[in-house]
Design a protein around this nucleic acid. Structure first.
Length: 636
DNA sequence: AGCATCGTAAACACTC
DNA sequence: CGAGTGTTTACGATGC
């Protein structure tokens, strides 16, 4: 089996570079500029090669760890699992289908995704005919992909094809696209997805073999081939029979003990191990978060490898999605545009919404926990799914307070009349174009109830503003839950992309990196997991390419975020520089002070990664000022 | 169980 | 008077 224990894997030296190569094999000609630096022919290793090697090593370790988790979480040994002809991708595989109830699914998927899922499922119910044909087709496809892999592998060995690690992460992200969620849903609900998979397969370019523009990995992800069959480029023939595949071994089982990172529980036999796996490592927030964190790590590593210096990885789409002067969400920087995406474009922690209310009203509630518990970056979500929410009658998974705040802060003057807030709601969300009485009442209720919303008498009448201090106060004092950790690390990882020099300076110590990770709310993650993150990050952070001046984008990443919408908006003024939100007291007009029912005494939100690390360091005065000025909420 | 948060509903007051 | 706005209370659901 390719999977060793987690700690071993993390420390795996890149003796088999093929692992990276095969995963990232791609010859799109778009950015393989570093492929030529392969210096293994002359025996001399240049610094560049060393760097690359180091990066690849970190990448490999992170990737393997992720894949381990994916396969481990999949609990393939469970007899209850009836393997469908189509495998779920890694992101899906990490959610043990047999353990996911529809309720859990609702919690995992955002409402838009759910809606898309359900619609697809309904359509699918009508046609379930092509099972066997599709299976054969899939197998053919797999064979072709294996050939393709081998070929690309050979080319890479000869230095003919540059490494394209980015493709891997794109694939991972593709693997998390709504269509794949649909796939998962179908599998969970026992619906054969032959039609759908066939469509996907047809989408692949079968007319070309070795050097087309789609990586084998991406194809595999699209075709739902188990990722572990691609790892290391070894030609594991994907076995369709889960029993056959997992009868005697399991990636996370070896030498009589569970190889789950940090577990090491003794299991006499496979059955016991499976039981243990299901009991101890079942899908929950934490395991999901771990996978997501790991994916973030891999993503950042891959971004780093493929975009060593410049910040040009912000797509035009991102530019369009954000108001002038507002920072772009760090997630977008690495978010590939994939045609597979139909609904919400990004599945991040922000998409892990619980939407479990089952109200009888036409208008279901916006669950606060969605944003607070999961620290949803609403700005990011909204920006990226703007069109979706605009057109789809789907309830946004954000609290009224968050939305109102976002609306206000998005406005040029950071103040809106009630009617303008209404208009914003209806303009931005198709969902709010109906049931107006309900939500408008709720909006008014929220405006009045929350002290963070301040009514200001204006010449034109009353406008509503946001008192950011108050808003922050009412935030939960402590982020709990694994997904909060993800968000924290999200920022950590993002800051890795293009951190300011001062960040790099302190991150060269693995211990420190580890401490940073723990200090950022990763304390609940086990030691080896933290070590994995730390070490993965370290390799990256040692890269000279990180020694880039702080850019606006990188500064945006320096703060651990919280939930929602305006995390992005409020701290940045129109000229792009960061500043505290205009306090209501700055208005010359009378202000109605409200008392909020409950107040959190202390703002003990996670501090920024930078702040947590750099306080002991000399900081350029201007940067220090900037840092102090910046609220500690995530700047998306 | 208790608490906090949120969404919803509704009553009420005030202004235009 | 009615609509819009703003405040307040109550209640149920949910999560911790």
């Amino acid at each position: 089996m390719m999977v060793e224990s987690a700690s071993e894997t993390i420390r795996t030296t890149p003796s088999n570079q093929n692992g990276v190569s095969s995963l990232s094999s791609q010859s799109d000609g778009g950015g393989g500029r570093e492929g030529g630096s392969n210096g293994d022919t002359n025996g001399e290793i240049s610094p560049v090669d060393l760097l690359h090697l180091q990066q690849q090593q970190a990448l490999q370790a992170a990737r393997q760890f992720l894949l381990q988790q994916a396969s481990g979480l999949n609990s393939p040994g469970s007899n209850e699992v009836k393997q469908s002809p189509v495998q779920v991708p890694v992101s899906m595989a990490m959610m043990s289908p047999q353990m996911i109830t529809p309720q859990q699914m609702q919690q995992i998927l955002s409402p838009p995704q759910l809606q898309a899922l359900l619609q697809q499922q309904q359509a699918l119910m009508l046609q379930q005919q092509l099972g066997s044909k599709q299976l054969a087709f899939q197998q053919q496809l797999i064979q072709m992909q294996q050939l393709q892999q081998q070929h690309i592998l050979n080319l890479q060995r000869q230095g003919l094809v540059p490494l394209q690690p980015t493709a891997t992460m794109q694939s991972l992200q593709q693997a998390m696209c709504p269509s794949d969620l649909q796939q998962l849903w179908k599998e969970v609900s026992g619906v054969q997805s032959s039609e759908d998979a066939l469509k996907q397969a047809e989408g692949l370019d079968l007319s070309t073999n070795s050097s087309n523009s789609t990586s084998a990995f991406a194809k595999a992800a699209s075709a739902h081939i188990p990722l572990h069959s691609l790892v290391n480029g070894q030609s594991h023939t994907p076995k369709r029979d889960s029993h056959e595949e997992h009868a005697g071994s399991h990636p996370l089982y070896g030498h009589g003990e569970c190889k789950w990172p940090g577990c090491e529980a003794l299991c006499e036999d496979m059955g016991q191990f499976i039981k243990h796996l299901n009991n101890e490592h079942a899908l929950d927030d934490r395991s999901t978060a771990q996978c997501r964190v790991q994916m973030q790590v891999v993503q950042q590593l891959e971004i780093q490898v493929s975009h060593p210096v410049n910040g040009s990885n912000l797509s035009e789409r991102d530019s369009e999605a954000y108001p002038e002067g507002l920072p772009h969400p760090p997630t977008s920087a690495a978010t590939p545009i994939t045609p597979l995406r139909q609904g919400p474009s990004v599945i991040s922690s922000s998409s892990l919404h619980s939407h479990s209310h089952s109200h009888t009203h036409g208008v279901g509630p916006i669950r606060r926990r969605n944003s607070d518990k999961y620290c949803t970056p609403i700005a990011s979500e909204l920006a990226q799914n703007c069109e979706f929410y605009k057109n789809a009658d789907v309830r946004p998974p954000f609290t009224y307070a968050s939305l109102i705040r976002h609306a206000i802060l998005e406005s040029p003057d950071r103040q809106l009349t009630l009617n303008e807030i209404y208009n914003w709601f209806t303009r931005k969300f198709a969902y709010f174009r109906r049931n107006t009485a309900t939500w408008k009442n709720a909006v008014r209720h929220n405006l009045s109830l929350h002290k963070c919303f301040v009514r200001v008498e204006n010449v034109k009448g009353a406008v509503w503003t946001v008192d950011e201090v108050e808003y922050q106060k009412r935030r939960p004092p402590k982020m709990t839950g694994a997904l909060a950790e993800v968000t924290s690390f999200h920022i950590c990882a993002q800051s890795v992309i293009s951190p300011p020099p001062l960040c790099v300076c302190v991150c060269r110590s693995p211990t420190l990196v580890k401490n940073m990770i723990s200090g950022l709310g990763f304390g609940s993650l086990n030691a080896s997991y933290q070590a994995a993150l730390a070490e993965s990050s370290l390799s990256l952070l040692n890269s000279p390419s990180l020694l880039t001046p702080p850019s606006a984008a990188s500064l945006n990443m320096l703060h651990v975020g919280h939930d929602d919408v305006s995390s992005t908006v409020e701290q940045v003024n129109s000229n792009g520089s960061c500043s505290p939100t205009l306090s209501p007291q700055q208005y010359s007009h009378p202000v109605h002070v409200k008392e909020e029912p409950t107040e959190v005494e202390e703002d003990s939100r996670p501090v920024s990664l930078l702040a947590g690390v750099t306080h002991s360091l000399p900081l350029p005065s201007d940067e220090r000022d900037l840092e102090e000025d910046l609220p500690t909420e995530e700047l998306e």
